[in-house]
Amino acid sequence: MAKQAKPRKGTKSAPRKTGGGFHPFRWLFRWAFRAVFLVVGLVLVIVMAHSRLNPTIGYYMWSEEQRLGTIDRQWVPIDNVAPVMARSVVAAEDANFCTHWGFDMEAIRAAMEDGGRRGASTITQQVVKNVYLWHGRSWVRKALEAMLTPVVEAFWSKRRIVEVYLNVAEFDEGVFGVEAAARHYFGVGPNKLSDLQAARLAAILPAPQSWSASKPSDYVRRRTKSIMDGAATIRADGRAACFETAG
């Protein structure tokens, strides 16, 4: 009987191959990572595109169109809007707009101290909500808004953010954007708005379906006066510079 050859000294036998098998969790993780990467990339591309291209109607605007049958809206470049209109909405909604990067921490602290009864959303946050998300107090929406807001601030100029806001803000039931609002309330184009008219439009933004710019309540009149003062102040102290010049 032939002797079995002994392995040479110092050599190692080849490792045994183990079956690869199917690992569902590893496969799931890999595809989940790819899906997230794809979604994030798509969102970045869309946000970057909207720094130049005008966005289509958002979910809320679409839902109002379905409910009412039609909406009044026409896009207008910010160059065709009276400069006082931009100053008025900033004074009314986000006086520190030029000094923050999407979140006004001072306003957030004040809102927390007030028990959450006052709003602290910046104009950028409102643009994100109106263009990309939906209305409501959902934590999911808030989380998405918090993630998208810095992205918009990173890729859009401040002037572009104000321009989009002026075109997507609701001013009455079914009336969206300053072009439609100026003609709806005052019968003039947005480039012809006076200081008073601009402040009136800005004054009704928190409750556009309850307040009227052409038939203001006493509260709206008081708020209008405050906004006119605020618009003049941010122009004088330089806080309007970031959106009054192209860039």
Rank of each mutant, 00 (worst) to 15 (best):
F29E: 04
K215E: 12
Y132R: 06
W211R: 12
P150D: 12
V84Q: 08
R141Q: 15
E173N: 12
Q66A: 02
V140L: 12
A207N: 07
D218S: 12
I108F: 15
Y60W: 11
W101T: 10
G20A: 14
Y59K: 12
V39Y: 02
Y59V: 10
L133E: 07
T124W: 03
E106M: 13
F176K: 00
Q197V: 01
A213L: 01
P190V: 00
R160H: 02
R117G: 01
V175R: 03
W211Q: 11
R183E: 05
E244R: 15
R87N: 03
E64V: 13
V220M: 14
G247P: 12
I78V: 07
E113K: 15
Q125L: 02
S212Y: 06
T224P: 11
F33V: 05
V89E: 00
V76K: 06
P24D: 02
M61C: 14
G119R: 03
A49Q: 00
V128K: 12
P7N: 02
F25M: 05
H100V: 04
L28C: 09
W75P: 11
W134K: 10
A107K: 05
E65C: 12
W156Y: 09
D237Q: 12
A92D: 09
T245Y: 13
E145G: 10
M61K: 13
V151F: 13
N130A: 09
E106D: 11
R34I: 00
F171H: 04
D218Q: 15
P208W: 00
A92P: 14
V89Y: 00
V164G: 04
F97T: 04
A203W: 06
M1F: 02
A240F: 08
A146C: 03
A107Q: 09
K225S: 04
V36C: 00
N80A: 03
V128P: 14
K9H: 13
R87G: 04
Y59W: 06
D172T: 07
T122C: 06
Y185F: 04
F97K: 09
